[in-house]
Simulated assay, not measured.
Amino acid sequence: MNETVAVGTQEAALPPAPGADRYRSLDFADTAATLPAGQSYDLLAAPGSAMRWLAAHELTTPDVRLYEVCARRMRTLRDHVRAVFAARVEGVAPPEESLRAVNQALTAVPTAPLLAWDGAQGPRRVRAHPTDQAVNHALATLAADAADLLTGPDASLLAACGSAPCDRFLLRTHGRRHWCSTRCGDRVRAARAYARRNDASE
């Protein structure tokens, strides 16, 4: 049986994959991962951890309180973004449902900060919204980022981690890079060394 662990911080899980510093949508897709020994983690599993992820990626402010329905919407969009990324990596058409979900997130709200008037400061741009609107803006921003990645010059660099059972995505910023983290790379190299030793002993 797989054991899913709700992790509150990115540091407690695998480190960000190559390319996550350029594309928040890549890090968003990797907020859930399958690990060896039947374990997995989900950084969006609970409203509190989902809120911390949004705040850490400057997609909302720490004072916005998230509820389960909002965290569930984040997880749903993440699944659709993952499906579109996987289709790009495999060179196949993405599921229509996933394309529709990304486009709905893109068009749900304007992603630009709104114009507001403050009696003391005058006109200014703000991102202050009720919780549901704050989440809408965050999801729209992530969907736009995913669309930019998929249609931009880095699209050909998008890859799936080559260390089973890890199912994270990365940008192959180096030609020989096939893994999302040092830990995954070490696991593959150890498995290869073990196989070579077994072959030599037979």
Rank of each mutant, 00 (worst) to 15 (best):
R72K: 08
C70A: 15
T4D: 13
A159F: 06
E202M: 09
T4L: 12
A17W: 03
G152M: 11
H129Y: 13
A193P: 00
M74R: 03
D21I: 02
A33G: 06
G91D: 14
A37M: 08
A6C: 10
L142Q: 02
V188K: 07
R176F: 10
P130C: 07
R196K: 13
N2S: 10
A143W: 01
G152H: 10
A86R: 15
T60R: 00
C166A: 03
R73W: 12
V84W: 02
T61Q: 12
T111R: 15
L171H: 00
A116L: 09
R192P: 00
A50P: 02
M51Q: 10
R177L: 12
R189L: 03
R75L: 05
A29S: 05
H129A: 08
T111C: 11
R65Y: 11
C161P: 10
S201R: 13
A86L: 13
H80D: 14
T31F: 01
R177W: 01
T61E: 14
R192C: 04
T107H: 08
G38K: 08
T111M: 13
V92D: 10
L170E: 05
A105Q: 00
S40E: 14
S181D: 09
L170P: 00
T9P: 00
W117N: 10
A143T: 06
P94L: 06
R52K: 11
L149F: 05
D21Q: 11
C180Q: 09
V89Q: 11
R172S: 11
A56C: 04
L54T: 03
T31E: 03
P165I: 06
S181W: 04
R24F: 01
L115G: 08
D42R: 02
R192I: 14
A105M: 02
T182L: 13
G175R: 13
G91R: 08
W179G: 02
G8L: 04
F169Y: 15
R197N: 14
R72D: 14
L66C: 08
A128E: 15
T61N: 04
A87D: 10
T151Y: 05
V89K: 07
D63I: 00
L149T: 04
A138N: 06
Q121M: 12
L35N: 10
M51L: 10
L170D: 05
L150I: 12
T173K: 07
A105C: 03
V64N: 02
E58I: 01
V5P: 00
A55D: 07
P16L: 09
D145E: 14
E11A: 15
W179C: 04
T131V: 14
S201A: 14
V92Q: 12
C184P: 03
A32H: 02
R73D: 15
P165S: 09
H80R: 03
W117E: 12
A32G: 05
E96C: 03
L158N: 05
R24S: 02
A29C: 06
R168Y: 02
V102Q: 01
A147C: 10
G91N: 12
